[in-house]
Write a protein that binds this DNA or RNA. Structure first.
Lengths: 338, 338
DNA sequence: ATGAAAGCGCTAACAG
DNA sequence: CTGTTAGCGCTTTCAT
């Protein structure tokens, strides 16, 4: 069974035609008489011929493959986006070369280099900081089209698919204030590794201060190994001054925060309200259910891929798309304690 | 800046040597005098030359890329495995072509076909049913080495990296019985889409029946869109006969079950105990924390990749590895109600 | 409608 | 130690 794979030449000779004819039939470029087509098809079937994509790529200088670079698969938000990318790419006959970078800029450039070596036709990425980013420069100077997801659109000249993080942060502040909270806090993943965390925080602070309240407490924790407990314990040593509501830069963090709070003997939302960001599926099953800002991750992946592929197909260039976010109320956010 | 990428020939002529010399230096195969090496290196730097992997692949007939096909990224357990695969592959200079199949056998064969077209050197996969699986047959007849993860080792002749699902299921039964539970139940993802769910169930049933208790109630729900509520409500209409403990075939399901139970006014673990399977990270942050069987997903991905790569490197063939699972106690499993 | 032949970028004998 | 050259599998003019 392990017959060495048939080549186009094998097909050609078996069908008694030239390789050009086979190629034309396979890609249906140029005409082939139904007469000969029959022979060729038979030969293809008999030999189990599948065109070698490597040979084709070398010849056409495009690979019908896309690079995907994201910080981590541990966060469902990225996993969802990749699923969306996968769906759209598959539907349009493209293949994905995938890598995750663990939030490391070094890995970003390393992996982009590899993707370039493989001559991916384009790349979809989420990077730490799109402002003056080495990976992006490499991509540009190689002339490989790319599109960002999740990253801030303002920070680079590259098309981006994302949500309005600042507005969302501001809305969260409003929501919390509307519930009567006066002492607010934010728990965020490290700002250096996430421009969007910065934006959410900016919006949140703006929303709080804009209402005349004191600036929120800001707690920054590591992305990879967030030690939420260590951050929260000292703050809640004095419950009288600690925030009664916490905005978390992502849902995973929010879940941890709720857990830690619970183990400290604080009730969510009785004592402390918590709002997350992302809208990961598991949040709706928790008890309390997680109040959060939903971003359409799957859709973001799909749209980004669509934009990029349209561009590759010669249609108009991708443009930045700000997709709508929505606030999902949940039991984790309630009125301020009296 | 968008200078058309330099080829090995450009480098050669700029350095005043032959392409063979450049190739030898780049791949450090064969000797090159330090003298000429200097020139070549300079040319490479000046031109920003990066060897074209497509050309190389065509020539060497291997791509240094691996295919990865898994059912879904929505389940963190697979995301973790992919992260492990990614880490090991990167470390050894391999690239990943990724696809998810949404538990569809059709998608399995389609995607394997594509991977074959791209001439991946090997593939790592989790499939619905390894017994008599079309995708596996295609792989075999193409002579492409592969290794399974998560799937049952017994069901195919292919090397597999997994845990002992049957034993784990049995242990869960023991644990629950040890806590005094007599009426047991299992909530499982669809058996048709998961041989491991079947194995976990088998072990569980065996553990229950082996202790002289009545066979557990078995509830099968869909993987993609599990309607846990619909399955549970009728059962718990009569609390006197309903199971006091539920084993769920995966953690995501367990989390849903806990949520639904809570919304039905049942307390976990006061009224009903729940044990999951997988050991996804979020489980430890929940309230109640999730009791579960941990499988070393990241490690499984790593080991599978290692095995496959060793095989490609001509070292000994991959062998099936049963990695150790561990029971992680959690607040979701407690003593049976009196 | 079909074929011949020249590459695409690189590696690997084979000669020197 | 270095250069020449023949492919790898496929697409694509250019003739016919």
């Amino acid at each position: 069974m392990t017959e060495t794979t048939a080549t186009i030449r094998d097909v050609a000779s078996r069908a008694g035609v030239s390789v050009a004819t086979v190629s034309r039939l396979v890609n249906n470029t140029g005409k082939v008489s139904e007469e000969t087509a029959k022979f060729v098809r038979a030969a293809i079937r008999d030999l189990g011929f599948r065109p070698n994509a490597v040979g084709r790529s070398l010849s056409t200088s495009h690979t019908r493959s896309l690079g995907v670079v994201i910080p981590s698969l541990s966060n469902p938000v990225f996993a969802d986006a990749v699923a969306g990318i996968n769906a759209e790419a598959r539907a349009r006959g493209y293949t994905l070369m995938f890598t995750s970078t663990d939030y490391s800029p070094d890995d970003e450039v390393r992996t982009i280099g590899t993707l370039l070596d493989y001559r991916v036709d384009g790349v979809i990425l989420t990077i730490a900081d799109p402002m003056n980013n080495a990976a992006l420069e490499i991509l540009d100077s190689a002339g490989v089209p790319c599109i960002l997801i999740y990253n801030l659109p303002s920070a680079s000249e590259h098309p981006t698919v994302t949500v309005d993080n600042v507005a969302a942060g501001r809305e969260v502040a409003q929501t919390l204030i509307g519930l009567g909270h006066q002492r607010l806090g934010m728990v965020s993943g490290s700002f250096a590794a996430s421009d969007r965390a910065v934006a959410r925080c900016d919006g949140f602070v703006d929303g709080v201060v804009g209402r005349g309240l004191p600036a929120p407490l800001i707690l920054e924790v590591d992305f990879v190994d967030p030690n939420v407990e260590e951050a929260l314990v000292p703050i809640y040593a004095d419950r009288a001054t600690a925030p009664t509501a916490l905005f978390c830069s992502n849902d995973l963090l929010a879940i941890s925060v709720i857990g830690v709070l619970g183990r400290m003997g604080l009730d969510v939302p009785k004592d402390v309200s918590v709002i997350g960001f992302d809208g990961i599926a598991v949040g709706t099953h928790l008890h309390p259910t997680l109040a959060t800002v939903i971003q359409p991750s799957h859709e973001m992946g799909r749209v980004a891929t669509q934009q990029l592929l349209d561009r590759l197909a010669g249609k108009e260039s991708p443009i930045t798309k700000i997709l709508p976010h929505t606030y999902r109320p949940g039991e984790s956010a309630g009125p301020a304690p009296s």
